[in-house]
Amino acid sequence: MALLEVDRLSLQFGGVAALSEVSFHVEKGEIFALIGPNGAGKTSMLNCISGLYKPTSGTIRFQGEPILALPPYKRAEKGIARAFQNIELFKHMTVLDNIMLGRHVRMRAGLLSCGFYWGKAQQEEIEHRRAVEEIISFLEIESIRHKPVGTLSYGLQKRVEVGRALALSPEMLLLDEPMAGMNSEEKEDMARFILDIHEERGTTMILIEHDMGVVMELSQHIAVLDFGKCIAFGTPEQIQTDPQVIEAYLGQEGTKEGRSA
């Protein structure tokens, strides 16, 4: 059974069809890529999976269970975490505090326990702080843990964004253009972290990325969207030679002459 199954999913905003009967599946433990031109519906798809948008029709199953009726926080509890294309951090707060916020759905001490700090709530905070410190070490941001996020470079803020998503201990991590706006060195670092998350933590990932070199190197399977429709699904090798993909996105003869990414 696939970890995630999207079946004939459609999403409309008035008379505009953002997604039209899109179907694909993501296997447990793989890096799955969503590609397509601007406006193809990629981010809309992630919004449907994470619960920010409610599809017009279709189904989404996670670990075999339908999730469309669940609010975003319940999907997070089930193991779906999200890093956004536009950084959504609390910039006046420190790196440590931002990543700690990602643990909120894992906190189980009740209101009464929280009233007595020297008890279950204290033990829980120690455990969550230990998990967050491990993420900080994993992402190599120990030296900036106490700095306000707003004072950091763009590349480091994107890394903190991924760290906050990892703090939810996800089964599936949704990454919306994690390398957008980065220089070459920052892109190499992020690609390395994505591979490490996949290999060392076994986290399944859905990646939206316009750098085709990164997509073809990192992903095991790819779905291609164009005007809200899925025009191709397969391995990187299959996608690179698909005539529809070449015409719609990669450009004629595999060049970069296609529509803007």
Results as ranks from 00 to 15, higher is better:
48 C>I: 13
208 I>Y: 08
41 G>R: 01
163 G>A: 11
193 F>V: 13
30 E>I: 07
122 Q>V: 03
75 R>D: 15
15 G>K: 12
191 A>E: 15
72 P>S: 08
198 H>C: 13
251 G>E: 14
248 A>S: 10
211 D>A: 01
169 S>F: 04
212 M>R: 05
89 L>H: 09
57 S>I: 05
201 R>D: 05
12 Q>P: 01
109 A>Y: 01
226 D>V: 04
176 D>E: 09
66 P>S: 14
79 G>D: 10
76 A>F: 00
98 N>G: 07
249 Y>G: 03
72 P>I: 07
43 T>A: 02
77 E>A: 13
243 P>R: 03
202 G>D: 07
87 I>S: 14
224 V>Y: 02
255 T>M: 14
72 P>A: 11
69 A>M: 06
130 R>M: 09
100 M>P: 02
132 V>W: 04
221 H>D: 10
107 M>W: 09
258 G>A: 14
125 E>K: 08
27 E>S: 13
22 V>I: 10
105 V>R: 06
56 T>P: 15
209 E>C: 08
175 L>W: 03
166 L>I: 00
96 L>M: 14
194 I>Y: 06
201 R>Q: 14
155 G>V: 00
91 K>D: 11
23 S>W: 04
225 L>R: 07
206 I>A: 02
244 Q>P: 03
179 M>K: 07
252 Q>Y: 15
59 T>G: 01
135 I>W: 07
126 I>N: 12
71 P>E: 09
215 V>N: 04
82 R>V: 00
153 S>F: 11
202 G>S: 10
238 Q>M: 15
129 R>L: 08
61 R>H: 08
206 I>C: 10
43 T>G: 12
